[in-house]
């Protein structure tokens, strides 16, 4: 049904259609965990991994749901699978990277309620991507999310030394930065050959 090539999808989701900066998916970690580069990067990777797992499971789940005419259960099944995948990542990080586990804190289990993860599953179903396209979409989405998080963390590290008016500090400043980044990413529009 959908004829986008793999490269188109990949480019589109990383740059002009960036999950965070163009589609507003995954705003919570984008604003919450982007204070330091050292936590932003692993958080990006963990989320990218969950996005990948969620996308793959959503693809097969969707085949199953369509086969049994149970499409109305899609939201419930997707979110349950995602919650399971997040639990897996959490246990893995806790065992092998305990320092990182403490640094990420509450935001690690919150990947479950990361819109980017559920968003991938829903959008790929809505656009009727086939298997290869779904993989490209989720890989691009994860990479784009990591990229946005890293850029944001870099900017915020610099700004810690800047003299910012007291009123603007905190969330407002992060949102301003997000807006500027988003404006910059609009410059990539059309690079993936459009929709």
């Amino acid at each position: 049904m959908n004829h986008d090539t793999v490269w188109q999808i990949l480019l589109n989701t990383v740059l002009p259609g960036n999950f965070v900066l163009a589609m507003f998916l995954g705003m919570c970690p984008f604003l919450g965990v982007s204070q330091k580069l050292s936590t932003a990067f692993p958080m990006g990777l963990a989320t990218a991994f969950v996005i990948m797992v969620a996308s793959l499971s959503a693809y097969f789940l969707n085949i199953l749901l369509v086969h049994f005419h149970l499409e109305f259960l899609s939201v419930i099944t997707f979110i349950t699978v995602i919650a399971g995948a997040v639990q897996l990542v959490e246990m893995f990080v806790k065992k092998y990277f305990p320092v990182l586990f403490r640094a990420l804190g509450i935001y690690l289990p919150l990947i479950t309620t990361n819109c980017a993860v559920l968003g991938v599953a829903l959008f790929q179903t809505a656009r009727q991507y086939d298997f290869v396209q779904s993989v490209a979409y989720s890989a691009g989405g994860g990479a784009g999310f990591t990229l946005a998080l890293i850029l944001m963390a870099g900017l915020r590290e610099r700004l810690q030394l800047a003299d910012v008016p007291q009123l603007v500090q905190g969330a407002a400043l992060s949102l301003m930065l997000g807006g500027l980044l988003s404006l910059a990413f609009m410059g990539f529009a059309g690079i993936g050959g459009g929709e």
């Binding site: 507003f24 400043l173 949102l175 301003m176 609009m186």
Partner: peptide
């Protein structure tokens, strides 16, 4: 467009 959302909320 997307940037507007960020700016208005900020």
């Amino acid at each position: 467009l997307p940037p507007g959302g960020f700016f208005v909320l900020a």
